[in-house]
Amino acid sequence: MSIDKQIVEHVAHLARIELGELELSRLSKQLEHILGFIDKLSSLDIEKTHPTSHILPINNVLREDTPKVSIPVEKALLNAPSKKNNFFVVPKIIE
């Protein structure tokens, strides 16, 4: 499987990371190299193997529906780069 600049550009958009032209070509090359190595996996026959997304044999972890005190609003907003009247603030949303 090979990866080209166009795919990297698309992926960078999905991940919301701006890439300069130089960075884009450098990363594309590196990712291609890494993916080439990863392609090692293609040699395995894993048609019938079950995927493991949780390594522990744990299930049904549930908590009671009992409210606890929330954190004070000042603490919630303590780190906010921009805030107004106890709201977090972001610049205009345009897609």
């Binding site: 990866i3 795919i7 990297v8 990371i17 890439l19 890494i34 972001v90 897609e95």
Partner: peptide
Amino acid sequence: NLIEMYKKTRAQGFGEEVKRRILLGTF
């Protein structure tokens, strides 16, 4: 605007290895 904020914050805030791995994982 927001999309620019996302992209620039993450471009300037993350180092190269972080970007590399995020891109690989996103892919």
